[in-house]
């Protein structure tokens, strides 16, 4: 049971940090650069993409046995385009200000490589629940990095934090950061920082687990665990 829960949650957590779409997989770079002129814009764009990703992942995973291999790409594109148009229409009705800011990039969610990549590599091979979890994980990771980038660019370029004026930044704000050039620069440098920080943390966790493991392992326990491991492997082999 615990293993099952872990298996279900695994795509969720790995999508946010380990397989972060923006900084690790470098997918969906167009919206990452274009709409992150403020933190709020990044947040809305991320959430819109997450919605499309979760829905299309669920539908594609449901239809994975029906969709013929030869025409799979047009089928995926159809599903994704449907949901992204729905998001566009809903946004136009209920959030007109945000719709005006996103403009073209709301329609362009269709060609965001994250969606097609997840459809091809995950949801077309897995059942519905893990696919939805994967969608939520990757989507939240994407939202997080877009918001983060938006906040940095907004803070440095306009001297505001989620639209609130930061007093001491007003005299030293550098407009270049909300221009296209600053977008590329911030993205590059944040990619380095992300990999530096997350890489260090991952290494620490790995080391800690390793050391911990050896500390608790006395020969008797070790033998017991080996036995369990063998049993588990045998049962898994039987399933196949």
């Amino acid at each position: 049971m615990r293993q099952k829960v872990k298996d279900t949650l695994e795509p969720l957590t790995s999508g946010i940090i380990k397989d972060n779409a923006t900084f690790r997989l470098v997918l969906g770079t167009c919206p990452t650069l274009a709409v992150t002129t403020s933190g709020l814009n990044g947040l809305y764009m991320g959430l819109a993409t997450t919605f499309v990703l979760v829905c299309s992942n669920a539908i594609i995973s449901l239809l994975r046995k029906i969709i013929p291999r030869k025409v799979r790409i047009p089928c995926y594109i159809l599903v994704i385009a449907t949901f992204s148009t729905i998001v566009e229409m809903v946004m136009r009705k209920f959030l007109p200000a945000i719709y005006d800011v996103m403009g073209l990039f709301l329609s362009l969610i269709v060609v965001n490589c994250i969606l097609l990549a997840r459809a091809e590599s995950f949801s077309s091979l897995n059942p519905v629940l893990p696919s939805v979890m994967d969608g939520i994980g990757i989507g939240l990771g994407f939202t997080m990095s877009l918001t983060l980038m938006g906040l940095v660019r907004e803070f440095l370029g306009a001297g505001t934090f989620f639209g609130l004026v930061v007093p001491f930044m007003q005299n030293i704000k550098m407009t270049v950061f909300i221009l296209p050039a600053g977008g590329f620069m911030v993205f590059g440098i944040m990619m380095v920082l992300y990999n530096l920080v997350v890489g260090e943390i991952e290494k620490k966790i790995h080391d800690y687990k390793h050391r911990h493991y050896h500390a608790i392992t006395n020969p008797l326990l070790k033998a017991q665990e080996d036995e369990e491991q063998a049993k588990r492997e045998a049962s898994m082999g039987g399933d196949k």
């Binding site: 403020s38 200000a97 005006d100 907004e154 370029g157 306009a158 505001t160 407009t175």
Partner: peptide, 9 residues
């Protein structure tokens, strides 16, 4: 009336 401009720019 409406715009999609970057705040602060």
């Amino acid at each position: 009336y409406s715009h999609g401009e970057t705040p602060g720019l």
